[in-house]
Computed example of a mutant assay.
Amino acid sequence: MLTAAQVLAQNNFGNTRSGGLAGPMGLFLIILLAIVTVLLIRNMNSRLRRLPERFPAPGEDAQAGTVEAEALAVDTVAGPTESGGRPADSTEQQARR
């Protein structure tokens, strides 16, 4: 008859040495996740550095947007200009010369 200590001491898990790929595969996955995490943090830091220090207040945002839109509309109507204020020569005009 088996005692309680003998029942608890029995190995009922089968052969644990065959197919011992779980350890190396787990290590590979942990290292892969660590590398992906580091790359993600670096990417997010670079994106945060490109943001402005302060954003305009909600009331100022609407006014700034209309001023920028008007300035863009004036630039597109007038076309590109040289530093002297004259319209810049297009590439077709330069090719004809």
Rank of each mutant, 00 (worst) to 15 (best):
V36M: 13
S46L: 14
P80C: 01
L51D: 04
S46C: 05
G26D: 03
E92S: 14
M25H: 09
L8E: 07
E70G: 04
L39N: 12
A64C: 00
A5V: 14
D75M: 12
L39H: 10
A95P: 02
V36W: 09
Q6G: 04
E60A: 08
R42D: 02
V77Q: 12
T66Q: 06
P87W: 04
D75A: 12
Q93R: 15
R86M: 15
L72M: 10
A64F: 04
A4L: 14
R50H: 14
A78G: 05
R96E: 12
Q93C: 00
Q94I: 15
P24D: 04
A73W: 03
E53T: 05
T66G: 04
M1V: 06
F28C: 07
G23N: 06
T3L: 07
L32S: 12
F13H: 08
A69E: 02
G84C: 10
L2C: 06
D75S: 10
E53I: 03
F13C: 04
A9C: 09
P56Y: 03
Q6L: 06
A9K: 05
F13E: 00
G23A: 12
L40D: 09
S18K: 02
E92D: 13
Q93S: 14
L39C: 15
G85C: 07
L8N: 11
Q93I: 10
E53F: 06
I30K: 12
T37W: 08
A34W: 08
Q10I: 07
F28R: 09
V77Y: 10
A73L: 11
V7K: 04
M1R: 06
L51N: 11
V38S: 08
G59L: 07
I31W: 01
P87S: 13
E70R: 07
M25G: 01
T16S: 05
